[in-house]
Simulated scan of single mutants.
Amino acid sequence: MIEQTTPAGATGALVVLATRNQGKVRELRALLASLPGLEAVDLETAVIDAVAAGCSEIPETGVTFEENSLIKAREVARQTGLPAVADDSGLAVEVLGGAPGIFSARWAGTQASDEANLQLLLEQLADISDEHRAAAFVCAASLVLPSGDEYVEHGRLQGTLLRAPRGDGGFGYDPILQPLGESRSCAELSMQEKNAISHRGKAFAALAPRIAAVLQAAR
């Protein structure tokens, strides 16, 4: 375990967000903001000593969202000695049998940008008619405690894939997924609107009582 680094000015119980994806960091902070007394720190802050020493990305070797979420949270809890929350999420397209799935972030290659992943998917679905463009964002959110206790919750946002990106909010595939019952893409929703219906919002809402219990135990 690396030397624990507590952010200056931290006043609440610390929970580490096990991600370096700044889009996710913003969403997770917003989702956890309703828990008073919680100090949610990101990886760059919580494990700054390890980062300076060249700490590599945590390999996501699982074959499901749940496995990858737990892999990340377990490793960060081990490194920091703090409770860690993580999620693994992606886009599941029905006509592709659930792909890109766990490969969503690297659909166009291991170093591909969000835009490259999105454009490749649109190209692959160019000939698919509107009635067969059903898709969903899927999320597994986990909490791992230094004691070894683990909790996992799931969330899903059903929708349909647009033929061209719309909106400049969010990240990843947000510009091309239109939630059921909506006329806008996820990237056209405010963060508050998106979190209220999103796969990640649902998963972390279900996980929140577990995180609240951690806060209670820390008091």
Score class of each variant (00 low, 15 high):
residue 123 E to K: 11
residue 218 A to K: 08
residue 168 D to N: 10
residue 57 E to F: 15
residue 30 A to I: 03
residue 9 G to H: 06
residue 133 R to G: 12
residue 152 V to G: 04
residue 172 G to C: 06
residue 211 I to P: 03
residue 3 E to S: 08
residue 192 Q to M: 05
residue 170 G to W: 11
residue 164 A to D: 12
residue 106 R to W: 09
residue 3 E to D: 02
residue 141 A to R: 06
residue 125 L to V: 15
residue 9 G to K: 06
residue 28 L to P: 07
residue 132 H to I: 03
residue 120 L to P: 02
residue 45 T to V: 09
residue 157 L to R: 01
residue 4 Q to Y: 05
residue 191 M to Q: 14
residue 70 L to V: 15
residue 69 S to I: 05
residue 138 V to M: 13
residue 219 R to K: 10
residue 167 G to E: 10
residue 202 K to W: 12
residue 164 A to P: 06
residue 212 A to Y: 01
residue 143 L to E: 02
residue 176 I to W: 02
residue 122 L to A: 04
residue 182 E to R: 15
residue 192 Q to Y: 07
residue 9 G to I: 13
residue 67 E to Y: 08
residue 84 A to Q: 02
residue 74 R to A: 04
residue 10 A to S: 13
residue 76 V to W: 09
residue 192 Q to T: 12
residue 34 S to A: 13
residue 108 A to N: 14
residue 125 L to F: 06
residue 105 A to I: 09
residue 171 F to N: 07
residue 207 L to G: 06
residue 218 A to G: 01
residue 111 Q to Y: 05
residue 197 I to A: 12
residue 186 C to K: 03
residue 46 A to E: 03
residue 156 R to I: 14
residue 167 G to Q: 05
residue 117 N to E: 01
residue 195 N to P: 02
residue 98 G to C: 06
residue 189 L to R: 02
residue 83 P to R: 06
residue 178 Q to L: 04
